[in-house]
Design a protein around this nucleic acid. Structure first.
Lengths: 284, 284
DNA sequence: GAAAATTAACTGGTATACAAGATATATCAG
DNA sequence: CTGATATATCTTGTATACCAGTTAATTTTC
């Protein structure tokens, strides 16, 4: 995972093409001076595919890696994020590293103390509480729409995903189990035709995810999750939206059981939240 | 609005203190070489107030200005965002400007074509549709909690806000009207003690806001909004959560009337969305 | 020894320079 | 005059250098 050197482009900063612009005659250069500066680029056409083939920037790579490391608790809350170290590990300059860090700040996964240091953000308990509420609300509309819109093939695919999740639970592969979990909820969102809302759910899940990484190993919740997923899917297959919503809510409610316990177990991982008013009006 | 020069810090890059490190004796410098490099900074304490006094960076200023300009349709969809021009307007270098632009990309308000240009993002209609659904879901839980938790003084404050909004509607001051509208919904979120969810609502609102800026001048909707707000508040004051939710939903539903009409009126402002699958699985 | 003052080395924020790709304009062929 | 080619100049992405603030280690003072 660590010490991955990015070699896209010229890693060794060779100064080729350094003596080329000097070999021009005055006549030609004068001719070139007559060019008018070109106008600003036109925006891409409206109806066109709006193809933005973004060629995987270095900052994206750093961002994804760090994001994953933080969410999986590989980097624990409070751990320092050293820009210098990252530049060495990835073989890139500070700029893309900095961009990645800034995006993580936007996600609420890291915090920066201006001239002091950057650290993996602690888990604000009130945010976890709210995230659970928000996710419930969003998954509710999603599963309701999916119950109406999902095709039979999509239902079958979900059954396969649940089966796979069962197998991973039996094998005790937590990582694969998580991935299957993610895939199940994603397929619901896909069936509901709510890609944007799924994005929001993911964003919210991230905040809860780190917390869940602590809770899940505790009790043997993995088989229960599979059962709950099955209940949701059964209701969807029966085209009973209300039941599907109810099962989903029951499923999600299982997470918010014992926050205080874990705060006592890993006190350094959680943060006391600032006052509500402050957060509310910090934006403007 | 434009051409605001930021003068925080030294604008004229004076090279003071350029000849200072040279005047040391060898003995002293040798002594200093014996210092061990200090350890990495410690993360801020867990229980402490987590005070991150971020001193309003230049990039924040640029971000806020651009954000506002885009949301208010002062910068129309498809308009180019020239980093060069912004550096001149604000008197700062490209770095903070670039940070601001990247944050706006994260918000979905601008799009960058890698080596070509940066433009104000068009409004993807499907995003608007989803945003309306998501906002409905989130405002629902918010207004429900607010109905239970709001104090009498908070109710009174909301009445004052509505009254103010009425006055602004009468005066025809659209900008102030919008602000009052924002304040009303914000106060509901505050009463519900859901600062995080309010943040999400705001994020979602932004996508709809630009669309709404086009629709609102059309019909005389301002007085109707005030009435709808009053209905919501009345239900809250009566502590009738279900009614409050119903009134809020009615209020929000008024927005999604006629998307197609506006797409035909300003075709260049809207974008055809890529396929759903693409968006869903673009993340991983 | 212990506490206060000093100082050096770290940090993130910013400025600037360079590289590589994309595009509008100029040039040229028919 | 029209269409294809070329090229200058624009753009963003990246690298590097510098500044100011913070902090830990050291030194000084009592």
């Amino acid at each position: 995972m660590a010490h991955v050197i990015i070699v896209r482009g010229a890693a060794s900063t060779g100064r080729y093409g350094q003596a080329m612009a000097e070999t021009e005659t005055d006549a030609v250069s004068e001719n070139r001076m007559k060019r008018k500066p070109r106008a600003a680029n036109a925006p891409p056409a409206a109806g066109s595919g709006m193809r933005v083939r973004s060629a995987a920037k270095n900052s994206d790579i750093v961002y994804r890696d760090l994001h994953k490391a933080i969410v999986t608790m590989e980097l624990t809350p409070g751990a320092p994020v050293l820009e210098r170290k990252l530049t060495e590990q990835y073989g890139v300059s500070r700029t893309p590293v900095r961009e990645a860090v800034l995006r993580l700040v936007e996600d609420g996964l890291v915090e920066v103390a201006p001239k002091s240091g950057t650290f993996v953000a602690r888990i604000p308990l009130s945010v976890v509480r709210e995230a659970l509420v928000a996710r419930r609300a969003l998954e509710e509309v999603t599963v309701r729409a999916a119950t109406e819109l999902s095709s039979e093939s999509q239902i079958m695919q979900m059954r396969a995903i649940i089966q796979h999740q069962q197998e991973m639970a039996d094998a005790g592969d937590e990582e694969a189990f998580h991935q299957a979990d993610d895939k199940f909820h994603a397929s619901i969102a896909a069936a509901a035709r709510y890609p944007g809302i799924w994005k929001m759910i993911q964003q919210v899940r991230i905040q809860v995810e780190r917390y869940r990484r602590l809770t899940l190993p505790q009790n043997g919740r993995m088989p229960m999750v599979v059962k709950e997923h099955t209940a949701v899917l059964d209701a969807m297959a029966a085209r009973d939206a209300d039941a599907a919503v109810a099962r989903m809510n029951e499923h999600l409610d299982k997470l918010q059981l014992d926050i205080s316990i874990f705060r006592d177990l890993w006190p350094d991982y959680f943060a006391i939240d600032p006052s509500l008013d402050e957060k509310l009006f910090a934006g403007k």
